[in-house]
Write a protein that binds this DNA or RNA. Sequence first.
DNA 1: TCAAGGAGCTAATACGTATTAGTCCTGCTC
DNA 2: GAGCAGGACTAATACGTATTAGCTCCTTGA
Lengths: 333, 333
Amino acid sequence: MTTGRRPPRQADIARIAGVSQATVSVVLGGNRTVRMAESTRRRVMEVAQNLGYVPHPVATRLARSRSNLLGLYTFRSAFPTDETDTYHPILSGVEEEAANLGQDLILFTGTSGPGARQEAAIRRTRLGDGCLFFGRHVPEGPVSRLVDDGFPLVYIGRRPELGGRIPYVGADYVTASALVLRRLLDLGHREIRYLREADEAPSSEDRQRGVLQAAPKTGVVRLQGAELTATTVRGWLAEGVTAVVVEGTDTGTAYRAVRGAIDAAGLSTPDDLSLAVLGGPPGVSGFEVPMREMGRRAVRLLVDLVTDKKTVRQQLLRCPPVDGAHVGPPRSR
Amino acid sequence: MTTGRRPPRQADIARIAGVSQATVSVVLGGNRTVRMAESTRRRVMEVAQNLGYVPHPVATRLARSRSNLLGLYTFRSAFPTDETDTYHPILSGVEEEAANLGQDLILFTGTSGPGARQEAAIRRTRLGDGCLFFGRHVPEGPVSRLVDDGFPLVYIGRRPELGGRIPYVGADYVTASALVLRRLLDLGHREIRYLREADEAPSSEDRQRGVLQAAPKTGVVRLQGAELTATTVRGWLAEGVTAVVVEGTDTGTAYRAVRGAIDAAGLSTPDDLSLAVLGGPPGVSGFEVPMREMGRRAVRLLVDLVTDKKTVRQQLLRCPPVDGAHVGPPRSR
DNA sequence: TCAAGGAGCTAATACGTATTAGTCCTGCTC
DNA sequence: GAGCAGGACTAATACGTATTAGCTCCTTGA
């Protein structure tokens, strides 16, 4: 009742109940392999109840080497100031599945600071049973150390680094992108342009691979800055282009640029030009990135790794195709 | 280099460097009160470096009883599915200040589940050095226990429960609301209606107190369901009402209802009627709730409590007034 | 030559729980 | 009445680090 009182520990219960600390641990821990008289069990429980005992999570963790605590390392803010956070569904999925599996989350801060702070944060990662990494950055030194030590970690998004030893849950951009292109070919499109952002991320590589796999003759345009104008678009039309495919990313830069240029040229989709986005805003033709599911699956994989369950350590999820309003048959055959 | 290797501990370093574990702890812990030869210091550091030693955070925490880990208990999802999360700025502020102060955050899950799960989650709260609580719900039993034990906790939002013993950082709705009403009086409004939601939360009480403090003759209308129609609004006009003040809340129900009814009645603001919101969407006349700042200050207060610094344990922040477009002088004097 | 004092280090213990290898009974069998 | 089988516990230890009291050895001064 008094303020500042020290919370009771097992030793206190033991003293009052006239048993040993070990007995208390056995009873309260629900350990059924150690035989214990029902009367003792009840007595201990009662004293614990009266004292309002709650196990000390840190001590439990140290003794058990398991805390049901998963790290979440974001390489950026988890609650970004920017209201429109494209990645939000991923974190939402992480939280949901963590709750389902009875895991709490540790949000590491200082993850986007200077190198030294970042490395320190990565070290703190060990506080949990395992850690989720979210971001395309792989600081090889610290991360490699974690992997080498057998510390369970899972990246969200495909990560080919460290000789492919990093477990991850990503999206199958290759297949999904190929599907979109195949669809365009089926509709009769032959002259297609693929607009890729100035980015070397695996997710970017994968999309291009899918595109060229399905339609090898697609012209790849590398987007650097805001060089995309109405003139560019008109140029394409003159070359016989009937469809444009855009890389969809978090920022959505490419999509907005193309959209703007098409509008500026006074053209409309899909009448003048078909427009598809590889993982874009909802409702636009192309495919959808299953962010929420990625979050959920990453948590599940991590828990499997923590509990030493045998699983596929690198998973790619299917991206559901989206039939939007901006894709149709080419204008002139 | 091999997989699954156990991470090195101080004992390993000690063995290799030919010193005791205590020495290693002293050197690596930067303990300057214990004298140590420079040569020894260097040798230990070197071995630690070679082995890639990183301190085990859990053990450190147990020994030091300080982990630089703050709990965040939300009584709902921290990453809600709903894209438009009004409270987002609060969490953003929490994260920002936590990063500034070098604190990581533990996100407790299962906080919105059934009572038993919730209580369990509250108990886990002890894992950190202290805990932030966000939500109007105060489960008296568990929370009282924490407070009694002297466990540092801070609520976000004013909490009068438990005999006023709960530390919090809230918004000064009373003063801010009074200011809005005084402004209306100054403009010449005499017949005013205050629309309050069906809610007994302190934040709701406070607003009403502020309103009546500045303008005791204000008519208080309790909003129950969707009973607000164009007819209601016309009725007010007939009664000589020239200004309506609405309680602003997370859901914004009241504001939308009034806005809808006014529009339906074919009236416009502020020509026919002045409209102010007590803590509403940005740009609307009334005042703004300093959410981000609340998050930041809550973290600071919590850290002060953790480090036993003397501070004001219950803080109310000023809400900046907003001069929006929907308030003007009354139509007819 | 011995006491005093300090430099450099370590043994021991604490933190709070989980687990394992026993110990000490009691009652039963032959 | 020795031997055995459980039943009911507990002593001891582990988990990995931090801290403190105190030990050893060396130097210095009278």
